[in-house]
Amino acid sequence: MVERAPVLDTICHAILIAGALLVCVPLYFAFVAGSLTIAEVQKVPLPWLPGDQFVVNLQAAWVKAEFGRTFLNSIVVAVGIAAGKIAVSLLSAFAITYFRFRYRMLAFWLIFMSLMLPIEVRIVPTFEAVANAALPLQWLAEMLHLGDLWKWISGHDIAIALEWNMVNTYPGLILPLIASATATFLFRQFFLTVPDELCEAARLDGASPLRFFWSILLPLSVSNIIALAIILFLFGWNQYLWPLLFTTDKDMATAVIALKNLIPRSDNEPAWNIAMSGALLTMLPPTLVILLLQRWFLKGLIDSSK
């Protein structure tokens, strides 16, 4: 602070309190609604103070949305996305910064191209690709007229129909969301700042590339890995469109999708109390993550968008 300006500072506090209220009001009303009975929640106006049904509603939401199962799914998907993306990105960043090979720049640009096309944009074709991941092979077979060739050779007529269906599986939920290059670039940028002497020393001592990666580069990257893992965990937990399309089976739904089915539509009974306690429950894990790991979270948030 450069000078004292008590009036302005008071105004600033007021602004920040207003900002905090803006954040908290929806959460507070969710809590109030989540602690009322269904009769109370329909009263107009809504009471300003919470009732005593919070635990009851939590239990009801837990059962109704099968949160036991869907939370597990969400955790698997979020951790899978974080771990998968970090592993894949570390390896490819290592390859494009530490090796001299012919197609290095091509590899770099191919990865670069995939940056910033969010899954929502290419949703239909991606869905087709994952609903039947063998489809490309089938197109290839059709293009090369393999069927005709086989008929010509053996006289038999065959239909080539390959199928590898990933709907309602964890890989189907996780893999398409790994396909983006942000993490690769983060690690690339970081590797470029690692002193060259480390690699030279490792080579003098006879370390193989993988040994160098494992014993030197990986330990150096730990803080970046943790920071990124937090961001990716939040990203995975909060996914909506992809799980929505991809989980026709109720057992494979993620928590956010299960929550969506709790929202009252106009034609059934308006159980907003259950929906709101479910909403609070679903946002609890990511909220805890950013509250408990805030410093790492901030680093990850800012690093990952460089």
């Binding site: 592993a87 894949v88 990105s89 390896l91 490819s92 290592f94 390859a95 494009i96 910064t97 530490y98 090796f99 001299r100 090979f101 012919r102 197609y103 290095r104 720049m105 590899a107 770099f108 990865i111 690769t184 690339r188 590797f191 470029l192 690692v194 060259d196 002497e197 480390l198 690699c199 030279e200 080579r203 590339p209 993988l210 160098f212």
Partner: peptide
């Protein structure tokens, strides 16, 4: 070469290809 470490493993194409494969 831009974006390449000065101290690099001047390996042939084998290992880096393997590393890039999953991505």
């Amino acid at each position: 070469e831009p974006g390449l470490k000065r101290a690099n493993f001047g390996h042939g194409p084998g290992l880096p290809t393997l590393l890039l494969l999953p991505q």
